[in-house]
């Protein structure tokens, strides 16, 4: 059995969760990764996706995050999310509207680089929609 480590999930508006977790699965922009206790110091950007937190009590909580950073250091894991919503209180409309926004971004994009970025974002959001089964 793994030992718990300090975990924090913060969005610009508030601190969503701050308590010890056994493991956290983070949707990193270059692939998902799981953080356990004594993970090496690590810093990654995250893509839109679902963070799965297993709390010290063994209970799992899921959050939808829309981009941001994950910072693992000696003090534990901190996720700085651009936006974070517990999956239970997330409705299909939220994701659908974000997908619409992303689609607009793709059509509005002026140069190739921003177009690629917007298209990647759209694809990631669609993945999330598929995972959550909305």
């Amino acid at each position: 059995m793994a030992d718990p480590f300090p975990f924090e999930l913060v969005s610009p508006e508030r601190l969503l969760l701050s308590e010890p977790a056994l493991s956290v699965v983070v949707p990193g922009s270059e692939g998902e990764f799981e953080v356990l206790k004594n993970h090496a110091p690590f810093m990654a950007t995250i893509k839109p996706g679902v963070v799965v937190v297993t709390l010290a009590s063994g209970q799992a909580q899921r959050f939808f995050v829309r981009g941001g950073f994950a910072d693992v250091n000696a003090n534990g894991l901190t996720i700085l999310a651009e936006q974070a919503i517990p999956v239970e209180s997330l409705n299909a409309e939220d994701i659908a509207s974000q997908i619409r926004d992303a689609e607009e971004d793709v059509t509005d994009a002026r140069d190739d680089a921003s177009k690629t970025a917007a298209a990647t974002r759209l694809a990631q959001l669609k993945d999330v929609q598929a995972v959550l089964g909305h």
Binding site: G28, S29, E30, A40, P41, F42, M43, A44, T45, F69, N73, A74
Partner: peptide
Amino acid sequence: TTAAIYEYEPDEATI
């Protein structure tokens, strides 16, 4: 102490 052994994904500049 902490900054030296950080690992980045993607690299520092991108982050």
